[in-house]
Design a protein around this nucleic acid. Structure first.
Lengths: 351, 351
DNA sequence: GTTAGCACTCAAACCGGAAGAGTGCTAACA
DNA sequence: TGTTAGCACTCTTCCGGTTTGAGTGCTAAC
């Protein structure tokens, strides 16, 4: 494919993104940096159509990019531009006071900022940190035969569960439980805390087993929660004010946002673009641009934008790259400094 | 307004609910219990239109009920039918094993069941219990200068917040805090726990004030959470499969469901019906039917159904009445028996 | 390889008439 | 006086035909 065809393809996609109308040969030929006639453009477009980059809604209409066409266009872009300093400053300002923020807050303000400038929905999948460790287990009596088990992890997550027992616990029982936890659970990695492991621990409790097993059941449920990845979505409203998207599909998406995790946690590098209805992603005519962020040397999660397929990729891709970069730095630094203020009661956090 | 007009109005609303088409005089005159000609029906309909119960989309179309028309129709109904035993049995079964359930679970299964049989969205506003008391405050060190404050209430709610202090606490500080809480906070009603009250307590701490005030700040935030009413919404999908409702409005509603609390907590008795766009309720062409449930002698919350205005009121109203009655009994009984298993980490709970 | 010219295609917009549902009014009837 | 049949009228909806215009593919000339 020669340079002119590439240029024409780019121009078609660009124009289509701007206008939403199928693009004709005449329009392209009139562009300042296209120096050939409409007829020539027509010939090239016919070839681009054969190659699968463009298509016609009907015989006498202009051309519209295919998925493949968009992909090619995006690839051309992504090598490109660094963000100009003034935009960078603007983004920094939107991110707010970066210091002293916790990981959750950093992610929240990043998604909020991104949603606002792109006028799209933004999504973050924050992987359950693999190195997180249980730092504290506590047991608090709160009523007749009701006890609250409290679980705190090294990355600042706090979980609690109330458990009803068959008998009230003696001080000896309480003592045993606390010691047992200190010896066996505290210091253990959350990812090790499988159901089998808990089963084993219950067995190891000996005569206390029967009385205390509901507590262990509670711990089991909490550890399952802790191992789930978190998914935030913000700016869903923006999808509804976009008339290229089917409202019913958007609604379905919002109600099943969890389904995204598969797409987001997929292994990939750099920028990934997913188009609606091309794969598992349910909103037709939409696209999702995702990039990963790191904590130290590990992938810690991914940040993405969801909007119509006609999206200003040229602007948005650098934004996302800048944000994920920035997040990587912030959370890596932050991890060195101090534990995190818990946010596990925020209703926007789903898993 | 004579009996025949009343009957005709009822018939028109009924027919309109079934078909969704404007109803003509001929259709009505052919109904089995209408024994007058179409011309007579026409005359009556003209009167009903003058009275504001019916309207015409255009001159040569049939009649459609107005808000007032619906209201009249619903009023006629609500005196009516007890639920037949077989339906009652069916509802009971859907509610599942009623014993041993907590308040939250009762409400959840009721909304789920109601959403399923009505194919509508259901909504529950559970008022923050006014008599709820703080039973326990605990303080747990979890990291360098980081402490978790735990708050447990008599109705089984558990809240926690991590607070970062300026210094690490000495055992003496810890001791003081726990004692102070035991003396001043435990036993106090949640509703008394205003910001001013907390302010006063901070003042009363004397020399410990500066060090411990971030903890009190945390308590303040948690008490604010505890005083919020809870709002569950279920079955939102159903609204999207209903083509009389504007999807964009439904979406807006879902994203701002909190706005409902005003409508739900309003004081009223028996059944209340709100029509979309008539007042503050945003979904055009929709209606919401609400009824209150009691805990002992106090209103504890309300349960409602949201669907298209063309709703089978004759069926749904008795359902709602039955459910709220049942819920009232269950939660009143349950309160006597045992404290509640906490559910405050459920992501569906909003406030 | 590029371009102008031309015939062709197709969607969208427009128009006008016919069909049909339903009304309001009037005059007759019990 | 209330009820009914009849009739003219209104208004939406549907259908088919025509027009318009944008855009194409092909061909022949440059």
């Amino acid at each position: 494919m020669d340079a002119r065809k590439r240029k024409i393809l780019s121009a078609v996609v660009d124009m289509y993104i701007r206008t939403g109308e199928p693009v004709g040969s005449k329009t392209i030929s009139q562009l300042p940096d296209i120096h050939v006639s409409a007829a020539t453009v027509r010939n090239d477009m016919a070839v681009l159509e054969e190659l699968g980059y463009l298509e016609q809604p009907h015989t006498s209409a202009g051309r519209v990019p295919t998925f493949q066409g968009y992909r090619m266009y995006i690839e051309e872009l992504s090598g490109g531009s660094e963000l100009p300093p003034e935009e960078r400053a603007q983004l920094d300002e939107m991110l707010g006071d970066e210091k002293n923020l916790t990981e959750d807050l950093i992610l929240q303000s990043a998604t909020a900022a991104l949603a606002q400038i792109t006028q799209c929905a933004t999504v973050v999948s924050n992987l359950a940190p693999k190195y997180s460790v249980i730092t504290k287990v506590d047991l608090i009596p709160t009523g007749k035969r009701v006890y609250v088990v409290l679980l705190i992890t090294s990355d600042g997550k706090i979980k609690n569960r109330a458990c009803r027992l068959q008998f009230d616990l003696t001080p000896e029982h309480m003592e045993f439980f606390k010691n047992f936890m200190e010896e066996n659970l505290e210091g253990m990695s959350v990812s090790e805390l499988s159901e089998e492991r808990i089963e084993q621990l219950v067995m190891a409790m000996g005569t206390y087993m029967i009385t205390l097993s509901p507590l262990m059941q509670g711990i089991c449920e909490m550890s399952r929660d802790l191992q789930k990845n978190e998914l935030y979505v913000t700016g869903e409203q923006n999808l509804f004010s976009c008339d290229e998207l089917d409202k019913a599909e958007v609604a379905k998406f919002i109600l099943h946002k969890q389904d995204l995790s598969g797409l987001l946690d997929d292994s990939f590098q750099g920028i990934k673009v997913v188009f609606g209805k091309e794969g598992d992603f349910v909103i037709g005519n939409s696209s999702m641009i995702v990039s990963k962020y790191q904590k130290g040397d590990h992938t810690a999660g991914s940040l993405g934008v969801i909007g119509p397929m006609r999206l200003n990729y040229a602007k948005i891709i650098p934004y996302i790259e800048y944000f994920t970069d920035k997040i990587s730095h912030l959370i890596t630094d932050e991890a060195d400094v101090s534990p995190v203020i818990g946010m596990n009661e925020d209703p926007n956090v789903e898993s």
